[in-house]
């Protein structure tokens, strides 16, 4: 029996699955526009950011865990890489407010379940799987420290 998916991630998945293929691309585009700017304290410290090598485009992530044990994911990707920005934005929004345990419990195949494999291709979805995997690894390392 699998653990229930966090509410926001389930909502994002259901929103995509409710749409036709072409409209799923439009929704992904909306997500890409919503990716927040990197906080200024990281913009000046590229050394803190981890490159997501699975993505063809230069996307970088950084994970913070606050005193309450809540995970904060920051990501940056250039405007000419909207697909990658969309992937990052889905995770930033979907993981917002979750605890360390909740983030670590997100199934690694989540990116394959949100109905984008046909519109975007499974190969490209691997970039999002890389984003999620690296986020979870950073959370694991930082929560152990």
């Amino acid at each position: 029996m699998s653990t229930a998916l966090p509410e926001k991630l389930a909502e994002i998945r259901d929103d995509f699955l409710a749409l036709e293929q072409q409209d799923r691309l439009q929704l992904l585009l909306e997500f890409s526009r919503e990716l927040p700017e990197l906080p200024a304290r990281y913009a000046d410290h590229p050394d803190l950011l981890e490159r997501v090598e699975e993505c063809q485009s230069p996307v970088y992530i950084f994970v913070e865990i606050d005193d309450a044990g809540i995970v904060h994911l920051h990501a940056t990707a250039p405007p000419e890489a909207p697909t990658t920005r969309g992937f990052a934005s889905i995770l930033v929004q979907g993981l917002a407010g979750l605890t360390v345990e909740q983030v670590l419990a997100v199934p690694s195949d989540y990116p394959l379940t949100i109905g984008l494999t046909e519109a975007v291709s499974p190969l490209r979805i691997r970039g999002m799987s890389g984003l999620l995997g690296r986020t979870q690894r950073q959370v694991r390392e930082k929560s152990a420290a």
Partner: peptide
């Protein structure tokens, strides 16, 4: 394109 969404932008 390499990026599947770029056309839509």
């Amino acid at each position: 394109d390499e990026d599947v969404l770029l056309y839509e932008t």
